[in-house]
Write a protein that binds this DNA or RNA. Structure first.
Lengths: 282, 282
DNA sequence: GGGCGGCGATACCTCCCGGGTATCGATCCG
DNA sequence: CGGATCGATACCCGGGAGGTATCGCCGCCC
């Protein structure tokens, strides 16, 4: 199977429309139809059920979509990491660390300082991204190492070390009646129908259904809470950097959040190893 | 980057010889030279240092070799799992479990029985392989789930659950003076210069240097021990199925062996989930 | 219900590129 | 210094990827 075929199939499987997929790929529709047909014939498997009105994935097609994305990420990662290795050989080695914007705001500077103090450390570029994007960046080689937060992020497919575990707090507008309480339960939070939990985009960019406002990033979320439009359950550490117009109350029975440092498996980079060592020693 | 280019590069990088690599790929040497040259030009990276007498990998080339193999495995896995998904939709679903031949001889039947007793379980094909091969089979889709033994096998890049941890014993010919001892230390074992530890093949098929005999599988190892040519440090559980002409003595300070059940990340298979559940409940 | 529009498949052409053979140039060896 | 080895280059050929035109099928709507 060639990556071209995989890219074509993934495009069609995502669009469920040959014309749009072809447009996205920058080719005409007929060669795309033919390519998918050839792929199916070579695999001996029907990947798509097409009527002249709708295209749907078969069971096998769904598997190839998932596995094919992973494979394409791996190929892309190979290419990117090779380029970076060539750069590192001639110029600055550098390291890209990715984390969710707004998370681990206290841990990150400590980690960077500790690592920078080590002998032989290299420059670390910090990449902040939205929730759920980190895994992709680590998988396709755009980042070398990441701070993930279980159970929100999945460590599937990565090597990792646990760094710390913390409880969660609910963040409310300052002055909200509940801010006087010493602690709350999840039931109290879900009962806040006037301050619903926000909805984060899924990996495909769409939003789940629900009452809460749609948010894209951390700053936007805090803004919405300050405006009295939402509330959010966040790790305790976010409390330290809260805006003055917000307040936080511990939620006793919220799931604990574990911060882990994760990197692609088989990473042979000395720099990653050093950063991980610095992190575990914090 | 196309998988064809990757396959070509991996072949050359492994052979370090364009002629032999071309032969292995079933093409002539000139197109191969050209393909590698094009790949280098497109990446803007020198992958191979060639004189007319020798070919060596650059730093970047070594990275692409490692990452490229992983990417090719991922592509192969996508293909294989798609085919299997198509089969599962029409015929028997089936599941392939891979484990090292000779290991977990007591755990495996218990696991298979426990899983078979579950409602909705599917047929499980057991694949026995040499040490170090399991990871490859799991990565390229030939197996769905595997029993690995840390620290010998690496769980890098897989999801896994720990099943049990055990000590190790040294296996000696029956009647050897040390078999009378209640327990030993690693120092006692390494002092056995007349019964050296065997050498296992690396993933590329070559053997490390050392005094011990070269072995390929478990049966061969036991045979060599019985012949008085070697000794081996193995997990305790192997004691239960020892031949009558062999004896085992616990080694107190040998590293503990943890048996884990591992599967490719993002596996959505119900069958794998069921097998893992059965394993953790043992 | 018949014409229309949208969509995937098919037919057919073109041209690029992957693969082959022949040969060159460099380097090591006897 | 001549032969052997090995990668690069030159050149040719054929298959296949991509394009345009068109067909066939099916909802939809006046």
């Amino acid at each position: 199977m060639e990556t071209r075929e995989l890219r074509y199939f993934v495009a069609v499987a995502e669009e469920l429309h040959f014309g749009r997929a072809a447009q996205r790929l920058g080719i005409a529709q007929p060669p795309l139809s033919r390519a998918i047909g050839q792929l199916e014939r070579r695999l001996g498997v029907t990947l798509l059920e097409r009527t002249s009105r709708a295209v749907t994935l078969t069971e096998a097609g769904a598997v190839l979509l998932r596995e094919g994305r992973a494979a394409l990420d791996a190929v892309e990662a190979a290419e990117r990491r090779t380029r970076r290795a060539a750069l590192a050989a001639t110029g600055r080695p550098g390291l890209v660390l990715v984390t969710k914007a707004g998370a681990s705001a206290d841990l990150l500077p400590k980690l960077l300082d500790a690592y920078a103090a080590e002998p032989g450390s290299v420059a670390v570029d910090v990449l902040l991204c939205g929730p759920g994007e980190q895994e992709r960046l680590l998988r396709d080689g755009r980042a070398d190492v990441g701070l993930l937060h279980r159970p929100f992020d999945s460590t599937a497919g990565f090597d990792f070390e646990e760094l710390c575990t913390e409880g969660q707090v609910v963040v409310l507008p300052a002055g909200h009646p509940l801010t006087g309480r010493a602690h709350l339960r999840m039931a109290d939070v879900t009962a806040l129908s006037d301050l619903p939990r926000p909805r984060w985009p899924r990996s495909d960019g769409t939003y789940p259904d629900g009452p809460g406002p749609e948010v894209r990033d951390h700053a936007q979320l805090l803004q919405l809470i300050a405006l009295g439009r939402a509330s959010a359950v966040l790790p305790e550490s976010s409390r330290a950097h809260l805006r003055h117009d917000l307040a936080a109350v511990p939620v006793l029975d919220a799931p604990a959040v574990t911060t882990v440092i994760a990197w692609p498996p088989h990473s042979r980079s000395m720099a990653v190893a050093g950063l991980v060592r610095a992190a575990t020693r914090l």
